[in-house]
Design a protein around this nucleic acid. Structure first.
Lengths: 153, 153
DNA sequence: TCACATTTAATTGTTCGCAATTGAATATGC
DNA sequence: GCATATTCAATTGCGAACAATTAAATGTGA
């Protein structure tokens, strides 16, 4: 019995790999964000940290790390750069001296206004309807959560 | 008129952003791949380069870059590391001296066999059916291509 | 032919991302 | 109460990722 070779029969082909799709999409997003975030003086990971802080201020480094799935080796130098840019302050907690609390400065809070129009620019670049994007986002988040669960084992 | 505030009304919320979903999913994939690729002595970007070369050998750096959406600033040092690991050889083309041609060594070709079971391990970790993954992959690729088109303007 | 533009890799400098380790603070068990 | 374990941030070292620049080779037009 002869049958046509389908894509699924070639698992090592680059174009068949969802992981490469995700990897390359992440870079593509980054490149779209870059000119927008340059105006705010932020990199994309720095923007993510600011998003967390705009939702909840005065949080320990660990909480930010859990939100973004990043560890202190990534966050510590990044937060120091944001502190050097006067967007936040790092202070060791008095209740638990192991923790460093991150609090926005007035400039850091003010930057939220300048960032307000970023999401709609990204939406435009994606050339997608909001409902399509929401559906995709939910699928990707579900996949990510399953992957993270496997790692945690 | 009062109505409930929906997710779409809060574009700056981290959890509403597809880009963060993609970004964090890429990292999650990376963490799942890591132990598998450690056995091959490869990082994930190095694995991607090997995937390209397993499909087509003896190609210029530029072709690899176009396939992976990476530039020479990323690829040159990465390829030098793969050369140091005796997986490939870099030789300047005699027809066009600007080009550097990348060719697998026998070890590089042999590694393909050891890599053969990687995709199925990833599939298992995703806890998804193949058809679901293919559908998601196609959506993400389509999104990525639209984003890259915007950048190219 | 010769000036000029284009193509291609390589280089430099900055920022992530993470593993592994360190060191200090806190929690736990006996 | 004290030894031990755990938690948390910081540090170190390595490998991406990319912008900007450099340098060499090639292509093009007058």
């Amino acid at each position: 019995m002869v049958r046509k070779q389908s894509a699924a029969d070639q698992p090592l082909r680059l174009d068949n790999q969802i992981c490469f799709a995700v990897y390359s999409a992440a870079h593509a997003f980054n490149r779209v964000y870059k000119p927008l975030l340059d105006r705010l003086g932020l990199t994309y990971p720095q923007y993510l940290v600011m998003l967390v802080l705009w939702e909840q201020d005065d949080v320990p480094v660990k909480d930010i790390g859990e939100r973004l799935f990043l560890d202190s080796g990534t966050l510590t130098p990044l937060l120091k750069r944001l502190e050097a840019a006067h967007l936040l302050k790092r202070t060791r907690s008095s209740e638990d001296e192991r923790q460093v609390l991150i609090a926005l400065t007035p400039q850091g809070q003010a930057l939220k206004e300048k960032a307000r129009n970023v999401p709609q620019s990204i939406l435009a670049a994606s050339e997608c309807s909001v409902s399509e994007l929401v559906a995709m986002k939910n699928e990707i988040v579900a996949l990510r959560n399953r992957l993270n669960a496997v790692i945690g084992e």
